[in-house]
């Protein structure tokens, strides 16, 4: 076992946890309002990071922008493009399949994910290779006690946590959030309240996809590079996190995301071979699923299935 870098492991785990949670929240929201699994979610994330990359490079071409401005514009660009993409996917692929077996939606979005992935590989110059992601965050370090934390890392953690917190508050406290929860529990009665079902579904997909774009940018900023097939891996992790937390539960998705990162961190400390950490994490997740098949905080109650 290797404890020497314990604090770095913890910080790394926190970053991953934030990113996974952001992805998992999307899965859980989509499942909540429409009972569907949208498998292209991870590729939307990846496309979001490429959108931000393109925006950022474009801005650098235009002239000297302060890096924070470059970051904000690229981030907003990525979020709005992906929110739009998510809405379009919901409108043209997911909603028309309502009434068809859920498996069909899963299959179609799986293929859509593949299409997004291959499109990025094909159309982005030299798209098969990893692309350097611009370093848009300050890279100085803070020393707290014996712990050293880089500012970019800290900003990613705090920013991600804030995004999750704000989304949570929005779902719990606003009229939009109330409508989303009502649609998730009983779409027909929600419509009887005057809620525009379709608009709420599209809004939810926009919200989840925007959050995926944010996760994609966070991923790029953390690793300083992005690659076209990264979304597949993050999608599987986010999906597992959402399922282990209990599909449909917001808090469950967040807990699931951090749990997965925590398991990877334990795995990384335990085993000297890095690849084992993912195997370890997935094995534990599978065991948890065998123990609690509907997830830790199940929202799926008997009258909904």
């Amino acid at each position: 076992m290797d404890f020497s870098l314990l604090d770095q492991h913890i910080i790394n785990g926190l970053v991953l946890g934030v990113i996974y949670a952001m992805v998992a929240v999307g899965f859980t929201l989509f499942f909540g309002v429409l009972n569907v699994i949208k498998f292209s979610h991870g590729d939307v994330l990846m496309a979001g990071s490429f959108a931000a990359l393109i925006a950022s490079l474009f801005l650098s071409q235009l002239g000297e922008f302060p890096t924070w401005l470059n970051l904000c514009i690229s981030l907003l660009f990525a979020i709005s493009i992906m929110a739009t993409l998510g809405t379009l996917i919901a409108q043209h692929l997911v909603l028309p399949l309502r009434g068809a077996p859920p498996l069909n939606t899963l299959l179609i979005t799986l293929m859509l994910g593949l299409a997004i992935r291959e499109a990025v590989r094909l159309f982005y110059p030299n798209g098969s290779n990893p692309k350097p992601f611009p370093r848009l965050l300050p890279e100085n370090s803070w020393i707290i006690g014996t712990m050293e934390i880089r500012q970019d890392t800290a900003i990613i953690i705090v920013g991600g946590l804030l995004a999750i917190l704000i989304l949570n508050l929005a779902i719990r406290k606003t009229r939009l959030g109330l409508s989303i929860r009502a649609v998730a529990q009983d779409p027909e009665t929600a419509r009887l309240m005057g809620i525009n079902f379709k608009r709420i579904v599209l809004g939810t997909f926009a919200l989840g996809s925007g959050l995926a774009a944010l996760a994609g940018v966070a991923n790029g900023l953390y690793y300083h590079e992005i690659i076209f097939d990264r979304g597949l891996f993050l999608g599987v992790i986010g999906f597992s996190a959402a399922v282990v937390g209990g599909l449909g539960s917001l808090l469950g998705a967040i807990i699931g995301g951090f749990l997965f990162a925590f398991l990877q961190t334990i795995g990384a400390i335990w085993f000297s071979v890095p690849a084992y950490k993912d195997v370890f994490a997935f094995v534990v997740i599978i065991m948890i699923m065998a123990w609690r098949p509907t997830g830790l905080l199940s929202e799926i109650n008997s009258d909904r299935v």
């Binding site: 109330l178 409508s179 929860r181 009502a182 529990q185 929600a190 309240m193 005057g194 929202e299």
Partner: peptide, 19 residues
């Protein structure tokens, strides 16, 4: 009746006035 089981009583009333 179709109350929203996982919303509170207050939220159930508020959603009646969602418009």
């Amino acid at each position: 009746r179709k109350v929203f089981p996982k919303l509170t009583v207050r939220e159930n009333l508020l959603i009646g006035a969602i418009l």
